[in-house]
Simulated assay, not measured.
Amino acid sequence: MSDARRSRFAGVGCGRVFQRYHLPCADARDDIEPVGAVDLDAGRAEALFADRPGVWTGSSVDRLLKETAPDVISVCTPNDAHAEAVLAALDAGVAVLCEKPLAAGIDAARAIAAHPDADRLLSVNLPYRFHELLKPFTEVARDGTQEIELTFVTPGDRVWRACTPWYGDARRAGGGALLDLGLHALDILVTVFGRPDVHSCEVDSAEVEERARVGLSFQGVPATLRIDRAGRRLAMAVTVRTSSGTHVLDLRRGELRLADGTVVEAGGRPELAAISGWFDVVTGTAPSAIATAQEALGLQLLVQAAYERARPVSAAALLG
């Protein structure tokens, strides 16, 4: 494909998420051309593209938009810097893929979702709703549902903290593990069962929690959401007890284990689905479903409702 037909791509925030997901996804496509990147640490952006002299780097979002004239940008900054970058891009008529959450604070998230071009130009990176096993899981999970449990455990507190020290700053992060990982978990549950009622929330810290347990219900069906960002393993699974037995969607293993013993396996990298889908939309390669700003705001409002009910308990109680 000639350069004239390639969509111009730029990044805002050159940390772990941009390096591991957004940039490789762009590089894997013939119809995307990386043209610029900025970071508060301009040296990090420069070092990342040291072998690409044609890519403009710096620290100013306004200059990035002016110097590179991108068609699409990925916003991968700390949460408190999402709003400024997203709104600047939308004002310039540039398509945006924003990392979750929309913003550190709910007022800034509302401002993003209310932008007149948000519906047309903005998508949020919530990839698990596009998992290939979610549809067959939905078909069995809704049949006589009696109880729902979603557990999301990662060793992120140890693995990510060196790369993302701002996770421990409530002002910059906007919350702890519940806002960070809970949005993914809630997005799965909402996609399958609809919007829940929030009844209770327990956290291991009143500041920036690493563990949380949230009590929900979906049209009267009880559900429990467990988040642990300080675990020693990686696990992400939805367990549903129904009138026909127990079904488990194991997102970590890429397996759907049905009550009758059937196991359905998935392939690919589901964490890239939202990025690839948005690139498809921007380039006109293929129509694709996206996670909209209004949907991301709805999830963030659920997290806020949980935080308003939050009760600090010991980590041992949450792990029990």
Rank of each mutant, 00 (worst) to 15 (best):
V203S: 02
E202C: 11
C201S: 01
R226H: 04
P222E: 04
V198A: 04
D187T: 09
V208M: 03
D204T: 02
G215W: 01
Q219G: 06
H184E: 00
G182M: 02
V198M: 01
F193M: 10
D197P: 00
H199L: 11
L183M: 11
G176Q: 05
V208E: 13
A223W: 03
L225S: 01
L183D: 00
R226F: 15
G176D: 01
D187C: 11
P196D: 06
G175D: 05
I188D: 15
H199C: 04
L189Q: 09
E210Q: 14
L181M: 12
F218Q: 12
L225R: 03
V208D: 10
D187F: 07
G176W: 07
E209A: 08
T239Y: 06
F193N: 09
S217G: 04
V221E: 02
S217L: 07
C201K: 00
A235T: 02
D204F: 03
P222Q: 13
V240R: 09
D187N: 15
S244D: 15
R229Y: 12
T242N: 13
T239V: 15
G175T: 07
D197I: 09
V238F: 05
G245H: 14
L181H: 02
G176F: 04
Q219I: 01
I188Q: 10
V240F: 14
G220H: 03
A173Q: 10
S243P: 01
R229E: 02
G194M: 08
G176M: 06
E209C: 02
D197F: 06
G174E: 09
R195H: 14
R171F: 12
S243G: 15
G175F: 04
R232M: 10
T191F: 08
S200L: 03
R229P: 00
C201M: 08
G176C: 08
L216R: 04
L216P: 05
T191C: 08
R171H: 14
D197S: 14
E207S: 10
E207P: 00
V203A: 02
V192H: 10
G194W: 08
S217R: 11
L216Y: 11
R195N: 03
T246E: 15
R171T: 09
V192C: 00
V192K: 09
L181G: 05
R171S: 12
A237Q: 13
D204V: 05
S243F: 06
G175W: 04
L183P: 00
D228V: 11
R172V: 12
A223G: 14
R233A: 15
G182T: 03
L225H: 02
L189S: 13
R232P: 03
G220N: 05
D204M: 03
R229I: 01
P222R: 09
G174C: 08
S243Q: 13
R232L: 12
L181S: 06
I227L: 04
A185N: 02
V221P: 04
V192E: 06
T224C: 05
E210D: 13
H184T: 00
S217K: 04
D228F: 09
V221H: 09
R172C: 04
D180G: 06
G175H: 03
R171Y: 12
L186D: 11
G220D: 06
G182L: 00
L189M: 10
